[in-house]
Design a binder for these strands. Sequence first.
RNA 1: GCCACUUUAGCUCAGUAGGUAGAGCACAUCCUUGGUAAGGAUGAGGUCGUCGGUUCGAUUCCGAUAGGUGGCUCCA
Length: 579
Amino acid sequence: MSENTEITAEMRRHSAAHLMARAVQNVFEDVQVDIGPATDEGFYYDFDLPHRLTPDDFPKIEAEIARLIALDEPFVRKVVSREECAKMLEGQHYKLERLADIPEGEDISTYTVGDYVEMCRGPHVEHSSQIGVVKLTRLAGSYYRGDENNKMLQRIYGIIAKDQAEMDAIVARAEEARKRDHRRLGVELDLFHLDPEDPGQIFWHPKGWSIYVALQDYMRQKLVKDGYQEVNTPALMPRSLWERSGHWEHYKANMFITESEKRIFAVKPMNCPGALEIFKSRLRSYKDLPLRLAEFGHCARNEPSGTLHGIMRVRGFVQDDAHIICTEDQIEEEVAKFCRLLKDVYKDFGFDKNLLVKLSTMPDDHVGDEATWQHAEAALAKACNASGMEYVIQPGEGAFYGPKLEFTLIDALGRAWQCGTIQLDYQLPSAERLNAEYIGPDGQKHHPVMLHRAVLGSLERFIGILIEHYAGAFPLWLAPEQVRVLPVSVKANAYAEKIQGELLKVGLRAGVDLTAEKLGAKIRAATMEKIPYQVVVGPRDEANGTISVRSRTDGDLGAMSCADFIAKLEAEVAAKKQG
RNA sequence: GCCACUUUAGCUCAGUAGGUAGAGCACAUCCUUGGUAAGGAUGAGGUCGUCGGUUCGAUUCCGAUAGGUGGCUCCA
């Protein structure tokens, strides 16, 4: 029996939450507790108390938790009747409401540690000492039951570790994430800035835009090879179109709306209506399908201010968007084709391992009949299997117009980011919406199906992820400045400029440092800017017709000819070498 | 949008128990002409987010407002 009671991290986190709840009640007056689950990272607990918590309160709560852990009391589970439980929870009105939620007939259990009882499903550790070390990390507001109409409770987040050494390592990793923060690196590396007067809009500086263009060019090549055609549609489109597409009804609150000569226009929040307008611009045959229209269209969404975050969540952005207009029979192959493309692209960033795929199925609130939905969901599932991807089902999480696949990548710090997506849409091309039609082999008109898809998601967000993934040290093919030539003194400036010219001529992004600094200072500056290659040149090189190469990853590579260096870099760019 | 916190030089941050402010880095000028991670000197740079209140006097206290941060909600 005992071999089955393995103590998991989740049990330890959840148990830590209980002890924190107990500690908060010991330290403060009039504490109402709500719930406190384990999370992937740690745990949290929601409280309602008159004292306004601040991080200054953490040490005394942590000390109390440490004291409770040291008591090493057992967690005792007990199945109780509803009445008994209600009696135990007397005065705790959130808990009593939660108790009322438990369906009749289901077991109600409590866990007791020392003098503290809590209604809880468990499971928990056997003894409090099994929890380890607890650290409180941050405070946040959180609506009771996640409903913004309810009272805002005070949430405390915490993390656990086996011992202090592990806790130190966790704190160090958090520090590493802080150092890699794209908002910090974006300023340090002079990639972009955000203007407080224009929230959620990005000003791309030359270096940041260089990355952006490199990424976009890369995607263009991939798209062309995969049978897409690139289009561009207006940023500003009329209200009448948005009414037909359904956005006016469903998405108006998030749209920037403007007026000209008494007509209302909206800045597009999505590209899909534009793609369908192109499809509809002439009579289409089934022979035109599938029609794959890609668009790097700039979209604007009036996201609530509280959701904005650096360049990851903005109000103006560009997706590597495309719309595949096809027949129902073509869905499976098109989805499989997309899955292959996505894997191929992610590999070039080192994201091909640990890819998570989620299949979101029919929600309660949906359009279309169930048979069509089942067919569509089966097509997505088969396409995943065909491309060797495992997926988990998210029941009822699909859009109201169709099911979708979502792809989550894992970055260098082990963090998950949902980027790629492919969504089936029966609604937008339908007669009720934009009424897209093609002539089938039977000579009759039919409505096509539309697939909305993006590999990277928004380019802005993806670059934000890349900045943190690479810690600002972009691989050669993406680096804004791939090479910097460093003359050892001003006497070598002319030769340095000549070398820079050679590099520029073959399309490498090369800079030159002509300042009057010493070589050590120039190397330091280039190193801080995370430039992949530094080329040192002085009288010795000039006499030999060579250059001295220093690599960001491999240090001093010694002297070589400029031609050999160019060949080396071109090979590295072609291979999309990481790091 | 909601809750909490926050806003001082381009960046990172001190500071003023109310008497209009400092450091490091970056920047400018001059000296130094140097072969693999910071040469030196001098200087410039801020209505202390904005508006209002209290006060003889506010960057400091109070209120409002805007931005940011962390959550929540949202993410067609």
